[in-house]
Simulated scan of single mutants.
Amino acid sequence: MSTISATVVIQDPIGLHARPAGQIVKLVKESGLTIRMGKAGEELVLANSPLRMMALKAKTGEEMLVEIDTEDEALAQSLISQIQDFLKG
């Protein structure tokens, strides 16, 4: 299986907080795929727990790396787009 990765930007004025973290986790669980997120240069975490996501302490303007284990590039791009929308606030 290949991994598709992209960068998203935290645009919410509050940063990555409970609501977008919960939306991302719900999306990850519905997709059934392994999705990891984290700051560049740091260890990525599985995006299947809101607490894990909030522990990243991502602030407004920070870039986050998203990695999705799938062969389906269209699906991965759709998921990345939805994650970016959740981070707009």
Rank of each mutant, 00 (worst) to 15 (best):
M1E: 12
M1F: 11
S2M: 13
I4W: 05
S5Q: 15
S5V: 01
A6S: 13
A6L: 02
A6Y: 06
T7E: 06
V9R: 12
V9D: 11
V9K: 12
I10Y: 03
Q11S: 05
P13R: 07
P13D: 05
P13M: 00
I14H: 12
G15S: 07
G15H: 10
L16T: 05
L16Q: 04
H17Q: 09
H17T: 06
A18D: 00
R19D: 04
R19E: 01
A21P: 01
A21T: 02
A21M: 04
A21C: 02
G22Q: 04
G22N: 02
I24G: 01
K26M: 00
L27P: 01
L27S: 03
L27M: 13
L27R: 12
L27Q: 01
V28A: 00
V28P: 11
K29G: 05
K29Q: 09
K29T: 01
K29A: 00
E30L: 09
S31H: 13
S31P: 14
S31I: 12
L33A: 03
T34S: 15
I35L: 14
I35Y: 11
R36H: 15
R36L: 15
R36S: 15
M37A: 07
M37I: 09
M37F: 07
G38T: 08
K39H: 07
G41K: 08
G41N: 04
E42C: 13
E43K: 15
E43Y: 09
L44A: 08
L46Q: 14
L46P: 10
L46F: 14
L46K: 15
A47E: 06
N48M: 09
N48D: 14
N48R: 11
S49I: 07
S49T: 10
P50Y: 04
P50M: 10
L51I: 00
L51V: 03
L51E: 06
R52V: 05
R52S: 09
R52P: 09
M54N: 02
L56C: 04
K57Y: 08
A58W: 02
A58D: 01
A58N: 01
T60K: 11
G61H: 04
E62V: 03
E63M: 07
M64I: 09
M64N: 02
M64A: 00
L65R: 14
L65N: 03
V66M: 10
V66R: 11
V66N: 13
E67P: 08
E67I: 08
D69P: 10
T70R: 08
T70S: 14
E71N: 15
E71I: 08
E71L: 15
D72R: 09
D72W: 06
D72I: 03
D72E: 13
E73L: 07
A74W: 02
L75M: 14
A76H: 01
A76Q: 05
Q77S: 10
Q77A: 11
Q77E: 09
Q77C: 07
L79T: 06
I80N: 09
I80M: 08
S81P: 08
Q82G: 06
I83T: 10
Q84M: 00
Q84P: 05
Q84K: 00
D85M: 13
D85L: 12
D85T: 15
D85Y: 10
D85G: 12
D85S: 15
K88G: 15
K88L: 12
G89V: 00
